[in-house]
Write a protein that binds this DNA or RNA. Sequence first.
DNA 1: TTACAAAACATTGTTTACAACTCTCCGTCG
DNA 2: CGACGGAGAGTTGTAAACAATGTTTTGTAA
Lengths: 261, 261
Amino acid sequence: MTDHPLPPTTDPLAPTADPLTPTLDSLPPAATPRVSRRTLATTVTERIREGVHRGNFPPGHQFNEVELAAHLGVSRGPVRESLQLLVHEGLLERRPHRGVFVPFLTETDIVDIFYARLALETAAFKRVITSPRPPGLIETLDATVDAIAQAAAQDDWEAVGDLDLRFHTSVIEAAGSPRLSRMYSSLISETRLCLNIMADTHPARGDLLHEHRELTQLIAGDDVGAAIKTLTQHFDEATVTLRRRLRETQEQPPPPQLPYS
Amino acid sequence: MTDHPLPPTTDPLAPTADPLTPTLDSLPPAATPRVSRRTLATTVTERIREGVHRGNFPPGHQFNEVELAAHLGVSRGPVRESLQLLVHEGLLERRPHRGVFVPFLTETDIVDIFYARLALETAAFKRVITSPRPPGLIETLDATVDAIAQAAAQDDWEAVGDLDLRFHTSVIEAAGSPRLSRMYSSLISETRLCLNIMADTHPARGDLLHEHRELTQLIAGDDVGAAIKTLTQHFDEATVTLRRRLRETQEQPPPPQLPYS
DNA sequence: TTACAAAACATTGTTTACAACTCTCCGTCG
DNA sequence: CGACGGAGAGTTGTAAACAATGTTTTGTAA
């Protein structure tokens, strides 16, 4: 089933070098006695989600439960829970009695994802602009835009993508609605999936920087209509770009499947 | 733990009298060989969700996994999966290593639920009005409003509530966005929870009927601004009513816990 | 009587084993 | 040669046992 067409380079499920999140590899000894509010399934979920976000698993890839469990050093129970969560989140796709797969995103999906994001962000924009803004929001957005400029100057398009998503997430969070945030995080997850489907290098649009600066100014202002109009255009252009990117990508054969460790 | 202050009246997890959904009670024999795309967890999820929607479990109620499993005639596996799904859906609340509970909804929650619903419906209204409407939409909405009138005339407020939710769900579906629909269904779930928290009888607002007629006409028209304005007022009034209702309800002692079968 | 502590209990989290389903491969029949 | 059918392997779905955590109770001492 899983032949190894590529030399095993890196572990697609390797956690980020974040000392705060205990690695699963160091689990067999009681490595997580700290605030045991963390459950195995939680950690596994983050590992898998991270891996998918990084694009380590191509569209159509099937997650084998026993394989995953063995690789992560846990049993199938937590793995199943994690997969179910990610499915419900929309990041993965389940076919009953068949398995869990990385979905093939279509142009329709891309349009829908950005349509749904626009729906939520429009509401957030409206509330953030008309209500007293949470302190520090504008500064946070400005800082993010600066970071985008810096990353773009270094041709680090992966960072640009992350910062782009962070910008929009900040606005959503500023709306102060737990449910809006919850729903948006799912959409962000799917957006990352979108970005990964594209070519390995994502030469982002050049005007992306300018657009975010403009959005920040509009959020700092009080013209809701103008802000939403610009936001809509911003999403329209992103959608167009992604659709073209997807079409270009699909014209080339899909990359071979990445094996575990 | 679970004493029985009330005589066991009806099974809080009893399925609706729908012959299409096979009951779990008839499971031990192979009662579901039909299109086995249904998994046990799916059925269990629907059963529990139905029970919570009907208000069979008071706020704060803890779902005991073994008890549930025994009552439904399945093992803890599917039950755990179901509970996790409902938690992720927002209908239930999980406290790690403690259990899954029916949440206590606060005024803040009510406001947030309707804020999020408004966000999604605003987008749906915009699209439905400005794009070619799916055929039969207006007729469906009209029929639903008629049904509301009929149910209200019979003082069947539970039906009124259901039809109200169906009306709004129809509009969302008409937008044709899988993700909008997915997110909205969670919010509808939580809205039902809201309604159940209220007194047993829900004497709905009298102008609810008129408002839905007006909304239908606006959807049939082409004035997006007017439609959204009316929609916003509709939600504002619903929120105010529910908040008052909640406050009234909380002034009285909560009803005793309902036992199983 | 009250406050603290330890042990017993109850419940969830995890692992392991078993059953059912789906897909693939191969043989046979038309 | 192609199509149908069945056996086999592999995977997911389910069940039951084990471990760990949280809660309650009970006893003791201040």
